[in-house]
Design a protein around this nucleic acid. Structure first.
Lengths: 228, 228
DNA sequence: AACAATTTTTCGATTGATCTAAATTGCGAA
DNA sequence: TTCGCAATTTAGATCAATCGAAAAATTGTT
């Protein structure tokens, strides 16, 4: 057993900062800048600096002034647990309560702060140990491990290639509602009929008969798994 | 349609005070005293006075200094909505996630602060519109109306009378665990075999064969519905 | 290398929620 | 009726979280 710091009761604000730092550093693997965090959290840069000092005192981040910030092992653990909770609750809201995938983010944003390890594990059980959330994002397991998946952006597919929609890179409700309208939901199979270089758009065949023209914006935000 | 004040985004602290005032005034119908609130919330009396001023400014309570406090119509509405959410979440935790009835209070205490009217109504639907929570307490409907039920304390039953357990007055985990041990769960039918005046205890028949002696403390905290 | 632009931090202040200690009010008993 | 105690409020302080403005550090450009 490791030296359990009892998941050190954090405030909601502190948890939100950890999650923001996680999201920012997740992509680039480089330290998160103060302004990047401020942008992500819709707060003033001065507020971020204050909080970084507090989080550093609690050993949740590695912080040197003017140098950006990285999560410590403990901070990473908490951040991943928050992501786990967020995504499990999203599955609950969509699968059990029937919410649309465009409506669940804000509610899950609140639910992820509920403190109860047993609740999380029972919820996971109740949902059948889902590995992906309603947007196709992987749900880390209790130890913080993510499921891997062969996925590429739709824009990477060549003419004639087939794929199945497995996720979205963009989570804006308007984008998700647009996908609903076009019946481009997770699990949908498609074939690339034609690619137009001049504007990066693609003509796509969905199911048997439907055929749609997708803009660059769309093809760059849809994850598919190739079907060979 | 009424003049929806948009359920005026309150802080968790404010919501907790409203609920405490609700619980205290619910029984006696007389104004809640500052110290009663302080006891209930485990805070200093001075903190209560501060908060009462803030809640009075927001028109959620009727407050005159030194005179105690009552909920306003708006405050009552919010308090009842909190009770509704709390009890619905308790049903969820017990019925869907398999928690024991002695484990759900603290988690529901957190979940009741989640803000989303749609979530509450979908949860209610999902749970099959329950009218009572796992402890037998009534769940107010969306308009704040409670279900009525013919219930009396077990200690009110005469020798020979029969009843079915429908609720508990005391919610302490230790009491609930004790009831579990004795298989005195909600829905259990029982018959009063004998009453002992000297210590107010009762000999009770449960199901077909079981027979137990219940102390005054127990019989004064179990609600039963008479079977005629 | 020097300087201008940008980023980040510091400073001083505010708000909400809390506390202890001191002052005030209300009420019951003598 | 008044005196004393308990309840309540006020006063003054703290802590977390936030802000705008000013100062400091870094970065990039010439």
């Amino acid at each position: 057993m490791s030296t359990q710091t009892s998941i050190s009761q954090l405030s909601i604000a502190e948890e939100n900062y950890l999650k923001a730092i996680y999201k920012i550093t997740e992509q680039s693997d480089r330290p998160a800048a103060t302004t990047a965090i401020a942008d992500h959290m819709q707060t003033a840069a001065a507020s971020v600096t204050d909080m970084l000092k507090r989080l550093a005192d609690k050993k949740l981040i590695h912080y040197e002034r003017y140098k950006g910030v990285m999560l410590s092992a403990q901070g990473m653990k908490i951040a991943k647990h928050l992501v786990r909770k967020h995504r499990l609750w999203e599955v609950f809201l969509v699968e059990k309560l029937g919410f649309g995938w465009d409506k669940v983010h804000d509610i899950a944003e609140q639910l992820e702060h509920i403190q109860s390890p047993e609740l999380v594990e029972r919820l996971n059980e109740f949902l059948g140990h889902p590995r992906f959330d309603p947007h196709g994002d992987p749900i880390p397991d209790a130890e913080g491990r993510f499921a891997e998946r062969q996925q590429v952006l739709l824009c990477k597919l060549a003419e004639g290639e087939r794929g199945v929609i497995v996720g979205v890179a963009e989570h804006a409700p308007s984008f998700l509602q647009f996908l609903d309208k076009l019946k481009l939901v997770l699990g949908t199979q498609l074939t690339v009929l034609e690619r137009f270089e001049f504007d990066d758009s693609m003509r796509i065949q969905i199911h048997a008969h439907n055929e749609v023209l997708l803009s660059s914006k769309v093809t760059h935000n849809l994850f598919v798994q190739r079907i060979i």
